[in-house]
Design a protein around this nucleic acid. Structure first.
Length: 463
RNA sequence: UCCACGGUAGCUCAAUGGUGGAGCAUUCGGCUGUUAACCGAAGGGUUGGAGGUUCGAGUCCUCUCCGUGGAGCCA
């Protein structure tokens, strides 16, 4: 008798039909009558369940019939077709071995639960349909991203998670320390003596691997990072987490248009790869989470992303005649309502907004010839908003120094970043993709807490 | 951090200031092809916490804790 996985049964049905098979999994539900019953078995390898039919010929029929949900079992029996039924085939059990009994107080019902409740049982929610689908899509999408970049010759760089540079400017950082918090060493002037700390200096969790990625881009030409990122911002929204994963490609001999071309190709690649490799999960999302999902994703695959400048975006918003809570004026950052209006109402597809005023963007973005704007571009998508932020980097030593000084930052802190501009500098560009936001976009899930296995948000670090 | 809303059985939700209920889940029983199976019965509650108003508070008031949605910040 061959041991098989449910995925094999669905993908290569003909190979196993009318054969004896052995399968191990967890009971999703049991419906039983006096002399026979049905088990929905899920073995984790496939989104769909396997229906197992059992009857009183089993020595342990009475025990099997009363198995609590989520008990683990091994089933032996013959795989047969079930024409006209909901499922294409089922296993007629000749033997059922009970591996591990579940308790009757198992908190996951067959009924729909709120996502909010499921978050409180993050150790069990991957066994539910929705989360089973979410985290498999997450895995498939992660692979698609690596595949996309590897096929194009990008080198995968692991930038540090603990960083001694507090100058990335991307947000509040989590401090990393081994100092005794009850007895903090102080210097004579009363300030904390970090020379006593583990690294002999202040250290934090990274908020971005970009500056380090630039180092590698100027050695390998094309690189990308894919790793965790930490922000200690007190953000309480469905789109922010304190710990999230980011993909940060960086390309030498590339400008803003090269970045946008790559990003557009990447988004399309991820979508088609996931549609092709997780079809059952994606169908589930389209049916039960967001029934505009397939239309939206196909629309993205079949359209050119719009590209407009910030200045044009401001004009469009002003001309729209719509009353915004925050008035639109050149120089102001685009608010969520503006971004959504642009991508959802005006373009109805992803849109790059380029060339933002320099005063609302980071120091490392390349100054345009007008002296007022920088070569930055954000990708806005319907439903989620900003999903990618990136720019051409300032490669001119003097201009970069001037920007650093203008913003009152300390030049010494950026010594190695500045040195890159001294030894064979070239134009280069890169961007950051929020992995969870991509998953939200791919699945239609509305909350970032429900697309990361163990979400960390302000005041929440369970599990 | 700001604004809004919410917290009642294991879960999802009802309950005009006047005896806290239902569906699902659980337990027991019935049922020969079920598909969130069906039918019958039972058990299950300090209404987030503290204080106050009232003859009487799940309901009104104050404070507090927690959560959700939106905003800001960003990816």
């Amino acid at each position: 008798m061959q041991t098989v996985e449910v995925k094999q049964l669905y993908r290569e049905t003909g190979k196993y039909l009318n054969q004896d098979v052995r399968i191990s999994g967890w009971v999703r539900t049991i419906r039983s009558s006096k002399a026979f019953g049905f088990i929905e078995l899920n073995d984790g390898t496939f989104f769909k369940n396997l229906q197992v039919v059992f009857d009183e010929k089993l020595a342990n029929f009475k025990e099997v019939e009363k198995l609590p949900i989520s008990s683990s079992i091994t089933v032996e029996g013959k795989l047969v077709e079930t024409p006209g039924a909901k499922q294409p085939f089922e296993v007629h059990a000749t033997n059922i071995i009970i591996e591990g009994m579940s308790n009757s107080d198992y908190p996951l019902q067959k009924k729909r639960h709120t996502f909010e409740y499921l978050r409180t049982i993050a150790h069990l929610r991957p066994r539910s349909n929705t989360f089973s689908a979410v985290f498999r899509v997450r895995s498939v999408a992660a692979f698609a991203i690596h595949k996309f970049f590897q096929e194009r010759g990008f080198v995968y760089v692991n930038t540090p998670i603990i960083t001694g540079s507090d100058c990335e400017g991307a947000g509040e950082m989590f401090r990393v320390t081994t100092l005794d918090l009850h007895n903090i060493p102080k210097k004579e002037d009363g300030s904390i003596d970090f020379s006593e700390d583990f690294f002999g200096r202040e250290a934090n969790l990274t908020v971005s691997g970009q500056l380090e990625a630039e180092i590698f881009a100027l050695a390998y030409k094309k690189v990308y990072t894919f790793g965790p990122t930490f922000r200690a911002e007190n953000s309480n929204t469905a789109r922010h987490a304190s710990e999230f994963w980011m993909i940060e490609p960086e390309m030498a001999f590339a400008d803003l248009n090269d970045y946008m071309d790559t990003a557009e190709d990447m988004v399309k690649y991820i979508i088609s790869y996931v549609l092709e490799n997780a079809p059952e999960e994606m169908e589930f999302f389209n049916n039960f989470i967001d029934n505009t999902l397939f239309d939206r994703l196909n629309n993205v695959l079949n359209s050119e992303f719009a590209r407009i400048t910030y200045t044009e975006a401001i004009e469009l918003l002003k001309k729209s005649g719509k009353e915004f809570q925050y008035p639109v004026e050149w120089g102001c950052d685009l608010q969520t309502e503006h971004e959504r209006y642009l991508t959802e109402e005006i373009f109805k597809k992803p849109v790059f907004v380029t060339n933002y005023p320099k005063d609302i963007k980071a120091f490392y973005m390349r100054l345009n010839d007008d002296g007022k704007t920088v070569a930055a571009a954000d990708l806005l998508v319907p439903g989620v908003g900003e999903i990618i932020g990136g720019s051409q980097r300032e490669e001119r030593y003097d201009v970069l120094v001037r920007r650093i000084e203008e913003l009152g930052m300390r030049k010494e802190d950026y010594w190695w970043y500045l040195e890159l501009r001294k030894y064979g500098e070239t134009k280069h560009a890169g961007y950051g993709l929020g992995f969870e936001r991509m998953i939200m976009y791919l699945t239609g899930m509305g909350n970032i807490r429900d697309v990361i296995p163990f979400p960390r948000t302000p005041g929440n670090c369970e599990f």
